[in-house]
Simulated scan of single mutants.
Amino acid sequence: MKNQLKIYSDMKSLVTMALLACMLPVASFANNDPKLDQDTVIIELNNNSKIVIVTKSKEDLATLENYDINQMIRDLNAQLTDSVEYMEIKDGKAYVNEDDEVELKDWKINDDEIRIKLGGVEVDVDPDKVDDWDEDDWSERKKVTYEAERVDRTTHHFNIDIGLNNWLEDGEFPDANNAPYSVKPFGSWYVGLNSTNRTWVGGPLFLEWGMGISWYNWKLEDADYVIQEGSERIEFNALPANISGQKSKLTASYINATVVPMFDFSRGRRKITSIESGGFRIKKYSRKGFRFGVGGYAGYRIGSHTKLVFKENGGKRDKDKEKDNFFLENFRYGLRAQVGWKGVELFATYDLNEVFSPNRGPLNADGQNAGLNAITFGITL
């Protein structure tokens, strides 16, 4: 390999360089060239090739530990061709693209910079550069698309679950019996905000785990019923004749912990599109291949309320909102299934315990306690 790797920029530790030398088959440090001063580190390989690291001062070596030297060597070995005679890395990590050009693909975040990551989109902002940015800079933006083959042991991201809620009674939806507690399928929204970690276990097996907050919204099919807390149980009572219901719903919020083993047959490989302009960098991550998993979750109720929107005697719309526990079970636990294909991720959850406390749910047509279990399905952003 006749290529030379020169790293100009902040370097952090001679110790890392020494470790690299120990891992190479034959490596020695020499400085016999009079043209090179004491701030030059030379690694001579056993095939008459060498790696040269030039720094402006010894203090610059202090940041060498910021760099993954082993990964650089692996990437260079896999991507460099005989047509590439020189490569310069000025910041972060660089790789050779199809045109034998060096493209910056990783942006080191300093203390005063901001990183926002939501789902498959990451935005990095450098406030010092943003002040000088204008719309003309966007026309000169840099766009790079590449595949990330390397799998980190654990990655972290935020995502949003958006879905529809309902509940099952003995495995059936209550509207099959025209029950007053039947839920309107569209409009009963579920929203979850999740902080998720993804840990690679081995092969195609990953473990997704984390914490989040979710909101159940059960919107009644018949808005002429009001949800009220009775003396012994939750009640779904008909409104007086002079009141016309427009919307009637029950909302409950929970803080949750989730663990889902995932089989990812692309083994974590992702397609990454990076756009850089001035102090902005936008990176979009798209997963590859098929993946699925089934796991569990547990949650604790942190709030609940009912909302009734109505008209009295045909007058103006009015609303009534009441906060209470409504005999809701404080704890929830159940199963979560996830399935994805490339950039699409679907989920479904089912509470194994009932929504309301034992024998505190509504009465069914037979006068028995209706055991209702929450069910949700939707998409993850």
Rank of each mutant, 00 (worst) to 15 (best):
E103F: 02
P127N: 01
T145Q: 09
L118W: 11
D124E: 09
N110Q: 15
D124R: 13
W138K: 04
Y86W: 09
T155A: 01
N97Y: 01
T81W: 00
D106C: 00
T81V: 03
F158K: 08
N159K: 14
H156G: 07
E149C: 03
D132Q: 08
V123Y: 11
A94N: 07
V102Q: 06
I116M: 13
T154Q: 00
W138Q: 04
K105R: 14
Y146T: 04
D111E: 15
E135F: 12
K129L: 14
E98K: 15
D124T: 08
D132L: 06
G92K: 00
V84P: 04
G119Q: 02
E113A: 04
D134A: 04
V96E: 00
G92A: 00
E140M: 02
A148Y: 13
K117S: 13
D152T: 04
F158M: 14
V123E: 05
Y146L: 06
E98N: 14
E140F: 02
V123C: 05
A94R: 05
R150A: 12
V130F: 08
D136M: 07
D137Q: 08
R115Q: 14
S139N: 14
S83E: 15
S139M: 11
R141Q: 13
V130K: 03
L104P: 05
L80P: 00
K93R: 12
V144D: 15
S139W: 11
G92H: 00
D161W: 09
T154L: 03
V102N: 05
W138S: 04
T154Y: 00
D161F: 12
V102A: 07
N159Q: 14
V151W: 03
Y146V: 01
E149Q: 09
V121L: 08
T155W: 01
V84M: 07
V144F: 15
V130C: 02
R153L: 12
W133G: 10
N97L: 02
H157E: 12
K108G: 10
D134G: 05
K105L: 13
W107S: 13
K129N: 10
I109P: 02
R153Q: 11
M87Y: 15
R141N: 13
M87G: 12
H157I: 06
Y86A: 11
D136F: 08
E140L: 02
D152N: 11
E98Y: 12
V102Y: 02
F158L: 15
V125P: 02
D111A: 15
K129W: 05
E103C: 02
I89P: 04
I114W: 14
P127M: 01
V102K: 02
V151D: 05
K117V: 08
D100N: 15
E147Y: 12
V123R: 07
I162S: 05
D99M: 09
D126W: 03
Y86I: 07
G119H: 01
V123T: 11
K105A: 07
V84K: 06
T155E: 03
E122K: 09
G120M: 01
G119T: 02
D100W: 06
W138F: 13
Y95K: 08
K108F: 12
I89R: 10
D82K: 09
K117N: 12
E147S: 10
I114K: 14
E122Q: 09
